[in-house]
Amino acid sequence: MERLLGTGEFARRSRLSVKALRLYERQGLLRPAWVDGANGYRRYREDQLTGARLVALLRRLDMPLVEVARIVAAPGTERADLLAGYWTRVEERITVQRGLAAHLRVVLSGGEGLMDMYRVEQREVPERVVLTEQRHLLQPELEDWILTARERLAKAAEPHGGAAAPHYVKYHGEVNEDSNGPAELCYPIDAASPPAEFASRVEPAHTEVYVRLRKAQVVYPQILSAFDAVARWTEENGRSITDAPREVYFADWATSGPDDEVCDVAFPVA
C-alpha cells in the first residue's frame, strides 16, 4: 500500500506550515488524500509534495490564492505563461506605486525636490485647426472619456485626412474628485478652416513649456506633480501662462508599457 504522510511530516517536506495547509484545504487548493472520520487526522500522498512545493514558491511571490489556484490547476504547458502574465502585472503596479511614492514625498516635504523629478523644455506650436469635444466630469470618469472621445474625433477627422498632430486634453478648470472642469479634447486636422459639420476652431500659434511623462507617471494623482513642476518653472523664469494647461498624447496608450513615454504636460506661455 502507498505510504501516506501525516500533516506534520507533509508540512515539513513541502515547506508549508500546518496552518497554511489547513487554509489551503478550506480553499480547495490542496486537499488531503485521506481524513480519519474518527479523529480528523489528515494524510497526504507523497506525490502531492510537488504541487504543495509549487504552492509554497508561488506564495513567496505574494501571489493571491486565486492566482495560485489558477496556476496549479492549469496544464503544465500553460503554467509558465500564467506566471509571466501575473509578474508583468506586478511590475506594472510597482512602477505606478514608485511614481506615487515620489509624488507623495514632494507633497509631504512641501514641494522639496519637485524640480529634480522633471526636465522642463520649450517648443513652438503652429496654428492648428482642431476638432473638439468638451465635457464636465470628475476625475474617476476622465480616462474613459478621453479614450472614447478620441475615438469619436478620430472618426470625424477621417474626411480631413485624419490626425495632423497628437491630440491633447485642455483643462479649463480643475478636474478631481470634487471639481468637474470642464475638460476639452482637441484633435488637430489638416484643414485651412474649421469644418462646419463638427465642433471645431482654430488654435493660435504659441510657445509651450512642457515635461515629458512615462505612462506610469500619467496616473492620477502623481501626474499633479508634473503640472506643479511646469507651473513653478514658468513662475521662476518670468513667464506668464496664456491658455489652459494640457496633456498632449503622442503615443498609443493601449500598447505602451509603464516605462514608455506617452504624454507631455504643457502650458502655453508668453
Rank of each mutant, 00 (worst) to 15 (best):
C186D: 08
H206I: 10
A183S: 13
S179L: 04
A192N: 12
A192W: 12
N180V: 03
F198N: 07
S193C: 09
A205L: 01
E174A: 02
D178F: 13
S193D: 08
E197G: 11
A199P: 13
D190N: 10
E174R: 06
A199K: 14
D178Q: 09
D178H: 13
S179G: 01
H206M: 01
E197P: 15
F198Q: 10
E203M: 09
L185R: 12
N176P: 02
E208C: 01
H206E: 02
S200Q: 09
S200N: 12
A196W: 06
R201D: 08
S200F: 10
P194D: 08
G181H: 02
E174G: 01
A196L: 10
Y187T: 15
G181R: 00
P194G: 08
R201S: 08
D190G: 04
N176G: 03
P195C: 00
S200H: 13
S193I: 13
L185H: 13
H206R: 09
L185F: 08
P182E: 01
Y187V: 15
R201A: 10
I189E: 00
I189A: 05
Y187K: 14
E184Q: 14
N176K: 02
D178I: 11
E177V: 13
E197F: 12
L185E: 09
I189T: 09
V202Y: 06
D178K: 13
P182Y: 04
P195L: 00
V175T: 12
P194L: 12
D190C: 04
P182T: 05
E197H: 15
D178C: 05
C186F: 07
E177N: 07
